[in-house]
């Protein structure tokens, strides 16, 4: 607790002193001379009334002093100084889901997690792309969280059931699970090449079992992502690498993710998705903390509150003192 304009307090004290001095110098108010005042002042009723009057005056003086002190303090702008490390919430996230048959339960879990997250988003943009042999942009990057949540709900239901027109347009290419193409489409969802102030990340869910001939290989797609400063966070529900060779699908995916500065997770069950997404979020959050800064909050509530109370008291007293 400190005061912005501390010099107001001595100023106010000086003003009060000068006013008191002027008041003392002022000629006394006109009073009529009377004789035999003791006829009234000696009455016990008068004595009683006089004591009450004096008590009221004393109370009025106290309230007035409190009022002046409180208003002077309020005028001096009391502030709360606190240090804050604000999280920059200007991320763009594209969910990039491989909707080949083996992935649907993981995709549903991811959709469910992001459906919940979208409710708390503030400033982030979220988009969604699904792919199999060709990719479909379900919804572009948007900050209409209500719409995103609706779409995610639809997606979750469709992924749970695994049927319906939801997957239309994902089999237009030759083969299936053309992961390089899918990732490239996801990366293309970010507008322009310059990331500007906003961070970009792709949550890529795939098992990296490629069947078919993609236009982009995974390496090429990840290079594209790195070029556009997009981090790829890969989730692999079926990491079944044999040994540590770099040509195994899991290792390839991990390499691709790390090339973009992203992370790689293997999933044992769809229930783990939530924890992993949180982890991704936290990494992102720590990466995007702004410099600590001092925050000054005005705290006029308590002096003004006291002033209001004492002012009300003075009004009531004044009404009693000057009937």
């Amino acid at each position: 607790m400190e005061l912005t304009y501390w010099w107001i307090l001595p100023l106010a004290a000086a003003a009060v002193t000068i006013t008191a001095w002027l008041h003392r110098r002022r000629r006394p108010p006109k009073s009529r001379p009377i004789a035999h005042g003791e006829r009234l002042t000696d009455l016990p009723e008068y004595q009683h009334a006089l004591r009450r009057h004096r008590a009221r005056l004393a109370l009025a003086v106290v309230l007035g002093a409190v009022f002046l002190a409180a208003t002077a303090t309020a005028a001096a702008r009391p502030i709360h100084r606190s240090t804050e490390q604000p999280e920059i919430r200007n991320r763009d996230i594209v969910l990039c889901l491989d909707v080949s048959g083996s992935m649907t339960s993981t995709d549903a879990a991811i959709a469910a997690v992001f459906e919940d997250l979208a409710k708390e988003f503030d400033g982030e943009r979220i988009g969604m792309v699904i792919f199999d042999s060709s990719s479909v942009q379900l919804f572009p990057l948007t900050d209409d969280y209500q719409f995103a949540a609706e779409q995610l709900t639809l997606a979750k239901e469709a992924l749970d059931s695994g049927t319906g027109s939801f997957f239309d347009g994902t089999w237009n290419g030759e083969g299936s699970s053309l992961i390089g193409d899918g990732l490239a489409s996801c990366v293309q969802s970010f507008p322009g090449t310059d990331a500007g102030e906003r961070s970009r990340s792709v949550v890529l869910a795939t098992d990296n079992f490629l069947s078919g001939e993609p236009i982009f290989t995974l390496e090429e797609a990840s290079a594209l992502a790195a070029e556009k400063k997009v981090k790829v966070h890969a989730l692999n529900p079926g990491d079944m690498d044999y040994g540590g060779q770099p040509d195994q699908p899991g290792a390839q995916l991990e390499a691709a993710a790390q090339r973009t500065g992203g992370t790689y997770f293997t999933l044992d069950s769809p229930d783990a998705v939530q924890g992993i997404v949180q982890k991704v979020q936290e990494t992102e959050a720590t990466n995007y903390l702004a410099a600590p800064r001092v925050v000054l909050d005005d705290a006029p509530a308590w002096p003004l509150g006291i002033a209001l109370l004492s002012g009300t008291g003075m009004l009531l007293l004044g009404w009693r003192l000057e009937p």
């Binding site: 009073s31 001379p33 009377i34 004789a35 035999h36 005042g37």
Partner: peptide, 10 residues
């Protein structure tokens, strides 16, 4: 009006 006792000045 306020009164002043001329006897006591009160």
């Amino acid at each position: 009006q306020q009164s002043t006792d001329v006897g006591t000045g009160q």
